[in-house]
Amino acid sequence: MSPMPDTILRVGRFDPAEFAARYAAPLFLLLLIAVFTALEPRFAHPLNVFNILRQVSISGLVAIGMTFVILTKGIDLSVGSLLALSGLVGAYVAKGGLDDRFALGGAATAANPLFLVVLAALAAGMLGGAVQGLAITRLKVPPFVVTLGGLTAFRGAALLFSGGGPISGFSADYAWWGQGRIGMVPVPVVIFLGAALIAHFVLTYTVFGKHVYATGGNERAADLNGVPTRRVVFITYVISGFACGLAGFLLSARLNSAEAVAGSGLELTVIAAVVIGGTSLFGGVGSIVGTVIGALLLGVLTNGLVLLNVSSFIQQIVIGITLVAAVTLDQFAVRRRQAQ
């Protein structure tokens, strides 16, 4: 019996659309770095490099969680609000209440050990994610709607919880997580990169990671083959909530203050980072490496334009165009895939 007659050999076949969709972000990042370094000597100074990384680390962490969600063809618009709420919950626990919410150097009044603070912030984030995940998987409400509701509701909850004002002035231990350094590297950067490594490992080498890609690629097929798709989708929203909790804690530590308005509009930056990093909004395609590159690209772009004294209005235009260009490439690649 002869082998299949029409096996098509495609190894080494170069597809420009595929190549562009895949490598546009890293190439553009390198180009930006080269241009900024050439135009502005301060850009490549180690202090500035770490500055960029630190700025990127908070939104980058949230973007890692968002990557899981978008890979399953979902979206999480609630991240900014959830970040604010979990930061406040952590700060509340740190202070043991709202009585001396403005006391500086709160060491004297520190009511609870730091690990409880972190646990509380993470639990708040994961709970918020779990509630949304349940609504999406059990009640079958589209993720866009559920998390749009979350965007408003969690912000309202944060305002209600804090009475509108900030909770500020933490112990040195607390602030170290946002302001400290390990060697030269800011602590949030270490956490961001550590989280990226773990997330990359999970997506690439675990059954859960494979099921995330399968669910995003073809949910019905995954279902028929015994993938617990509802559980997979649910967990991705919990992961996103976890990332918000961690980021909320780190941001409050960095600012030495937790506020209900923290992270306003963060969802847009984060989704932009994920999408620019090559993760498809159509699900099933993307990576953590891409998301880290997307987050860095936005950080470098903003920082470089600031150093070059470009108006922040123009920065927004540039970022907007970059985002649309990234999605255009993705669309193009998708159409090519379908045509094949």
Binding site: V207, K210, Y213, A214, G216, G217, N218, R220, A221, A222, L224, N225, G226, V227, G284, V285, R337
Partner: peptide, 22 residues
């Protein structure tokens, strides 16, 4: 073998063969 084959296009052949029983 389902009518539409129940394949995930974004995964490799081996991934698809072992989908759900990796």
């Amino acid at each position: 073998v389902h009518q539409d084959l129940a394949l995930c296009d974004n995964l490799t052949a081996a991934d698809n063969v072992f989908l759900g029983r990796e």
